[in-house]
Amino acid sequence: MSAEVKAIVVSGNGTNCEREVANACRLAGAEHVDIVHLSRLLSGEVSLHDYHFLNFAGGFLDGDDLGGAIAGANRLRHAKIKTSGRSLLDEILLFVENGNLVMGVCNGFQLMVKMGLLPGFDHDYRTQRATLTFNDRGRFENRWVYLKVDQKSPCVFTRGLTGMYLPVRHGEGKFVVEDPQVLERIEAEHLSVLKYSDAAYISPTMEFPLNTNGSMAAIAGLTDPSGRVFGLMPHPEAYLHRTHHPRWTREELPEEGMGLWLYKNAINFIREQVL
């Protein structure tokens, strides 16, 4: 493989944030970033295995008509790649086993959870253990939230971070698990890497509007035990520059937005450990 970090952002059928995710990858230092329409992966024209960093961007896959990203997850499970006859999920699992990184934001996170990629206990990336469903208030909400980072998490994306301020923009972001054991294990293994919290990033909270959706254990983002597969409801690609911050006209802020940190960690990890 070349020494260049290559990122792919999958688009099509209702993704909306592919351009800003690609921009985040570029700003974070990826040498090569492609936005690839799903049809080109399914035709076999483009292969995931030419990349190191797979991104599932936010949006409304198939309108979220059957529930957030459910139809999208169904497609990745069942649609066959023309040239190989394998499903895209097969390829994604191989991509993960090969040591690469996967990140999903908002609808992309929903997609990963509903395919079973997260929490991905025991290398089982096909069994759905949790879901993201309607916000407790039953409404879409665009609002900035504070996220406490679990510093003991194996997540490679959040290394060195303690808290982040990012916008949520969703109607179905309430994290729910299959049974209490799943939540226990998620917590025990520090997989619930981001939690909605107070403004000081100290206490996770169930209180609206700090926790906009009523997520169990205030969970906003999740990693798998390898730390290389990661998803979150808030939008890091929406805070790349200080002018993205809702109060940039009244606060002293660094040029670089907090969301960029996640992408920089990803790219650095790839440069150091994958290439």
Binding site: N16, C17, R19, E20, N23, G58, R139, F140, E141, N142, R143, W144, P167, R169, H235, E237, A238, L240, T243, H244, P246, R247, W248, T249, R250
Partner: peptide
Amino acid sequence: VVRRFDHEVQGNTVLKPLTGEAN
């Protein structure tokens, strides 16, 4: 009403419809 409309998708909105100390 404003919060029900995504006003930041595409990542370009630098002056948003709600502003100030408490957004």
